[in-house]
Design a protein around this nucleic acid. Structure first.
Lengths: 187, 187
DNA sequence: TTCGCCCTACCAAGTGTTAGATAGGGGTTG
DNA sequence: CAACCCCTATCTAACACTTGGTAGGGCGAA
């Protein structure tokens, strides 16, 4: 059995947090989903704040891996950028879940500092990747690529949030399509 | 204290919910802010769900009034549209608060149905107004004005969320500026 | 034995909510 | 007029439950 409880906790905690946020994440439900008791979580994580930070950190690590793979596997930066919104789409496909970073951004005022740090890192990872892709695609000059990247990130996050509030993935698709029509995202 | 406790409760509850969400809204803190006891809230509202719905309803009623006034007072629809993001900016100016609708969209899974309804109405009010302004300005054809309006609404909400996560209003301004540069918002 | 992993059994604080009481004001009625 | 009753608005006190967190022990494997 070894230590895959820790991984199971991280995975379940991530799912719960993407549905109910950090404040909606509680040890008893989490433990039940993993198949252990609440107190056992403390053997793997020091506190709720520590768990939250670990979940957020793992979240951006996974996202970074996925983005780097996407960039490397795409035939060109433009087609990589075209697929970027799919990452957010998949959250919605998974029981209408929200990006962990978006949920925690809303909860900003009530987040332990160690969690906030990881949330901000997620945003930075995304913006840096989009910025890199924009420059590589020749779609932005290096001096304002970060601003454009941030606009894309914010717009896609907004689209996901609005689509979630309607529980309607097709609304997400329509919003992304509108962004493309305006040239905010590549066609 | 105040001659009208019900209004004071609504106002404080709105502030709290824009900072901590529906789940972060609790009767004891709310009552303390108003200057009464938690149990007294039940004289004015039937339950937390009822209070939440009343707050969300008042929120979109106020927003609708403000939008209608803005439309009527502007010299033309374009200048009205230009000022639209200021409504979201003001939330950030008020202690980095989020749009109530955005916060509650994140909390979608844990919201009582009566609250969800009001949240969706807020979105509809906004989209309808933007759509009307776009058509009046000749910036969109009636058959796709709603799609464009929704894109604007989602993008502005996203910008507010990202700016909040950094506690940085200038980031909101920069995002809006990027949207303008792309023609998503009028110059 | 020691250590990793998990358990049972708690605890204090906080949650929405209810019951029952109190004080004051405004009518209606004897 | 005064006695009565109801309504409004608030209170205190408690309920049942959930929360994150702690103390200490059991058990299998190295």
């Amino acid at each position: 059995m070894t230590t895959n409880s820790k991984e199971a906790i991280l995975a379940s905690a991530r799912q719960i947090a993407q549905s109910h946020g950090y404040s909606g994440l509680n040890f008893r439900d989490l433990a039940a989903q993993v198949g252990i008791k609440a107190a056992s979580i403390y053997h793997h994580f020091p506190s709720k704040a520590g768990l939250g930070a670990a979940v957020a950190r793992r979240y951006w690590e996974d996202t970074k891996s996925e983005l780097d793979t996407l960039f490397a596997d795409s035939r060109d930066p433009i087609s990589a950028l075209r697929e970027y919104p799919k990452i957010f789409r998949r959250s919605l496909e998974s029981d209408n879940r929200l990006c962990l970073c978006s949920f925690m951004s809303a909860e900003y005022d009530d987040l332990p500092h160690e969690v906030t740090v990881e949330v901000q890192t997620f945003a930075e990872i995304n913006v840096a990747w989009i910025s890199k892709a924009l420059v590589a695609a020749g779609a932005a000059r290096p001096e304002n690529s970060e601003a454009q990247a941030r606009a894309i990130f914010a717009a896609v996050a907004g689209a996901q949030l609005i689509a979630r509030s309607r529980s309607d993935i097709s609304m997400f698709d329509a919003l992304i399509e509108s962004y493309r029509a305006k040239g905010l995202l590549p066609d």
